[in-house]
Design a protein around this nucleic acid. Structure first.
Lengths: 181, 181
DNA sequence: TGTATTTATATCATCATGATATATATTGTT
DNA sequence: AACAATATATATCATGATGATATAAATACA
């Protein structure tokens, strides 16, 4: 599932520029799937254009750079559908936070507490935002499903951390006791 | 948080070869943090060695290639501690599965059902494995915390999908109804 | 007996990441 | 009103990650 397919996916929701595609993976409907950067998007769009999977229209603007709006072609739509038929790759996760928790016993209790509190703040912000857009009503079924899924996971994370954080902080305070037993 | 730091982290648990470091990120204690491949590990170990953050001992074996076992140096340990003090980067996720769910309305109901069922099977296998090693007892606090965290998330995913899968399959069966309303 | 998996390292082309450059309009703050 | 920060918009670059491939033999499994 490379950036080309991700771009084609966003373009099924309507024509878009590279900038708008990135936004779709930040706050937009694709926001909980993954992040992508300009360094991936612009080369991907160039390749898609070369292979006639998208077309482009330039809008010259005063002051700002030309806005290049891309549109899916019929070939591009078929290409996406073929990609969706291929085996689903397993989810990939990269958690800096969990890596740090592996070394809770090497951190000072205050540093550990700060990390956990910061993480809780991030999670609670995400939860609040999702709870608000849950009442929008008119979103398509897939978006409702994904927003609910993300909300369920964030809640599970926050609940678990809240309930078990003192196990970690306790272990960091009295490591010698665990060894003695 | 690059591969060098990840390798140093594993080496705090004891000397290891590149092969063993990879295993630690598959089934081992670092299994829920992220995946790394040989293509990242071997160059990272070479750089760590050059910077005197690790040492290496070669074990010549008959038939097999030399096993190169790496050991953390005092400098390496400090380097890791410094890295843990830097700001925690946000978690990164890449979900091929969720991307496909965004296009539930473009898939045949049977293909969609197959994807969801496969996903549930993967999740249930992971849950069973985690439930078994939850009874091990003698693991350090950090590993217990992370295993419990992973288990909570997998359960939340499986529960949510099980409860809401028919919303997606229903929408894929009767898309014309949603448009008409 | 034959096949698949595990042990073990290494390299390579391709792709992604994150930083940086450029330039202006808009919004927010003191 | 002046100033700073953010949003709009594209593009490139060095560095690093990914996944595939090569090599080779022991062990487990059918």
């Amino acid at each position: 599932m490379d950036t080309k397919i991700l771009c084609l996916g966003v373009l099924t929701h309507g024509d878009a520029s590279g900038y708008e595609i990135k936004k779709a993976f930040e706050d937009g409907p694709f926001g909980h799937i993954q992040e992508i950067g300009f360094g991936s998007i612009y080369p991907a769009l160039a390749k898609l254009l070369k292979d006639n999977l998208v077309t482009v229209t330039k809008y010259t603007q005063e002051g700002r750079p030309d806005k290049k709006v891309y549109r899916l072609t019929a070939t591009g739509r078929l290409f996406l559908l073929d990609a969706l038929d291929e085996p689903t790759e397993p989810d990939k996760v990269r958690s800096d936070f969990l890596f740090r928790m592996m070394f809770a016993h090497l951190l000072s209790p205050s540093a550990l507490e700060a990390m956990i509190s910061e993480r809780m703040a991030v999670l609670n912000t995400a939860i609040e935002r999702l709870e608000q857009c849950a009442d929008d009503g008119l979103a398509p079924a897939s978006e409702v499903f994904i927003n609910g899924y993300a909300l369920a996971i964030y809640r599970a994370m926050a609940d678990y951390i809240e309930e078990h954080r003192y196990q970690l902080v306790g272990a960091s305070l009295v490591p010698e006791r665990a060894v003695a037993e």
